[in-house]
Nucleic acid binder design. Structure first.
Lengths: 191, 191
DNA sequence: GCAAGAAATGAATGATGGTTCAATCCTTTG
DNA sequence: CAAAGGATTGAACCATCATTCATTTCTTGC
């Protein structure tokens, strides 16, 4: 019984991520999520006090998946420059492969309460990068800088450069390569 | 009179910008805008077919003001590096001086139709920067790069680095200086 | 002044979609 | 197997605003 409860809660979250990926936040009415999860509309409220709480969890969950992917990619590298490159390639690659979801997570208008969770998602990426940058500064690979500020700026540059391609459906031929050059230069990676 | 019509249309737009600056987009109900402009709710619809059209104009107008300010600041400089610095300082300075308005223009959740106008605003900043960057590349001040991509990334970095301070109300002591260093490096300005 | 028409009014309307809840269905347990 | 208690249902409810429109108030031309 407890397992049944947990399972249906997870089905609801998964259904919401699915609709987010197919139709964006605009398509995510509570009724639509419930239908896709195979439960009644009202049942959603047995698991979440309000829609905002559901989508806070949805954004947390989908965001964590992205964070895990870039963390894994970066872990395979050993210099700050290579780690940052891995983050950019993974982030952009996944975004371009699931453009609707990426747009929803990054930029689509959402309820203010959900927007807060989006900031958490962006800050998590920034925090990850800040660690790599701080390490790079500490062992002399990168010049002195404020890792929090530069990592935030990197996340902004990445997100902004993705929004155009995500909307139009196609990225320029060397968007990712150009971003890597731009960000490496910005961090002071020696050429 | 015709002048009276135009005047009241402008009062409505100005009132909307005022509410945007005081209470954000969330406070911008048609009734609130009309009240502040000193007209009846229904009168707004004599000037704009729908709320989205009003706010398209509001974002266009407020955005143009920002574009004008950074354009003017950049025009006083003669190298690409100095122009970009002037853009960053002006953009950040104005944002920090009107944080609620800046947040609304940059990041606050808005109706999808208004979001489109926000993209126009961001793209206008990027286009301005792209021109300076292209000039810098052309006369050898900057290394070869794709000005559209790098200017977009710069706008993203700027906006993202501002959102935190705009929400919390205070910028770190050297946020602007750090951003200038970051962006100059990213563009390949010789040190 | 005075019609005739334009403009302004603001309360009523309507659409959307989140939230509730009385009725129903299961699962559990003695 | 029966009763109790919780889970599920989904149609009704309600709050929020954008939008409309019958009515009133100005402007204008004669």
């Amino acid at each position: 019984m407890k397992a049944r409860l947990t399972a249906s809660r997870e089905r609801i979250v998964a259904a919401a991520i699915g609709i987010l990926a197919d139709h964006g936040y605009a398509g995510c009415s509570v009724a639509a999520v419930a239908a896709r999860a195979g439960v009644a509309t009202g049942s959603v409220y047995r698991h979440f006090p309000a829609k905002a709480d559901l989508f806070a969890e949805v954004f947390r969950s989908a965001g964590q998946r992205e964070i895990d992917a870039v963390t894994r990619a970066a872990a395979a590298e050993s210099t700050a420059a290579a780690r940052v490159r891995a983050v950019i390639e993974t982030f952009a690659g996944r975004a371009l492969r699931s453009p609707r979801l990426a747009y929803a997570l990054l930029a689509e208008p959402v309820d203010p309460a959900v927007e807060a969770q989006r900031l958490v998602f962006r800050r998590a990426h920034a925090a990850l990068l800040a660690g790599y940058i701080a390490d790079g500064v500490a062992d002399g690979e990168l010049p002195a800088q404020n890792p929090e500020l530069t990592s935030t700026a990197v996340v902004g540059a990445l997100a902004e450069a993705m929004v155009g391609p995500l909307a139009s459906g196609v990225a320029g031929p060397d968007t990712v390569g150009g971003l890597i050059t731009f960000i490496h230069r910005a961090l002071g990676v020696p050429s």
